[in-house]
């Protein structure tokens, strides 16, 4: 028996929106710890790791650890039946090949029961080693999103360079080139507007913009994004989900031949 209840149902809608352009099908791992997922994009260049801790749910029951294979696109379709202020309950029983989503309006005057077929998904689970990163940039997630959108109109790749001067995002395309530098700004009264750079070593890495831009679909989950970089390593783009967990995207760099 697996059952979880999330009063802030829009959060699940936003989480699924944040992964549906990257991943087609995925196994959701259910355990007493929480509801989690690890999946790669179809070309195995990017990986997304989601964690929603059990303590973040109003009700969480998971009698045994198991995985639910779901099509993310179908899940997004089912969640379209939920209003943003609905309470969402997800239920699955042992041995069944379906999952039930229940959407309750806050005033309890409308209840939707949606059943979705589960899938058998053969997916590799990757071990992600704990790493010390050479540079960690924390910045407003909307700022990061708009930088990625702006640069992707010019080029296909983004070079992220962290130095004492700040973090520079640059691109080059057929029509020209552009670079945007953000300096450390921790003096702001609003912590969500701060840009903070922790740097042990200067780092310069290049990534495909189409993936990074997909990651920014998670912008509504967190006011801040954390970008962790080390030379010749995948970048980690993390959005914290308040009181529940996080969504982390890993992207392998492009390396010069």
């Amino acid at each position: 028996m697996f059952e979880l209840r999330l009063v802030q149902g829009s959060l699940l809608k936003r989480v699924i929106d944040a992964i549906k352009d990257l991943v087609n099908d995925a196994n959701f791992d259910c355990s007493s710890t929480g509801f989690s997922l690890q999946a790669m994009d179809s070309s195995h260049v990017a990986l997304v790791a989601l964690l929603l801790r059990s303590e973040g749910f109003e009700h969480f029951r998971c009698d045994r650890t198991f995985s639910m294979g779901m099509s993310i696109a179908n899940m997004a379709k089912m969640l379209k039946c939920a209003s943003n202020d609905d309470i969402i309950t997800i239920k699955a029983d042992d041995g069944t090949d379906t999952v039930t989503f229940m959407f309750e309006s806050p005033s309890q005057d409308k209840i939707s029961d949606i059943e979705m077929k589960l899938m058998d998904i053969d997916s590799d689970h990757l071990g992600i080693p704990d790493a010390e990163y050479e540079a960690i940039v924390r910045m407003p997630s909307t700022e990061f999103g708009s930088i990625c959108t702006s640069l992707s109109t010019i080029g296909d790749t983004v070079t992220i360079a962290v130095s004492k001067q700040g973090v520079t995002f640059s691109t080059k395309g057929d029509i020209g080139s552009g670079n945007i530098t953000c300096r450390q700004n921790s003096s702001t009264e609003k912590p969500e507007e701060a840009t903070i750079i922790e740097m042990k070593e200067p780092v310069v890495l290049t990534f495909a913009l189409k993936y990074i831009t997909t990651f920014t679909k998670a912008t509504s989950l967190s006011s801040q994004v954390t970008i962790s970089l080390s030379s010749d390593m995948p970048v980690v783009v993390e959005y914290k989900i308040a009181e529940m967990g996080h969504i982390r995207y890993y992207l392998a760099p492009k390396i010069e031949e």
Binding site: M40, H44, V45, A46, L47, D124, H125, L126, G127, I128, P129, T157, T206, A208, M233, P234, Y250, L251, A252, P253, K254, I255, E256, E257
Partner: peptide, 14 residues
């Protein structure tokens, strides 16, 4: 010229 590395090159199968 740059080439795209795969995520498998960094993270191991568990």
């Amino acid at each position: 010229l740059t080439f795209q590395v795969c995520i498998h090159d960094f993270f191991f199968l568990s």
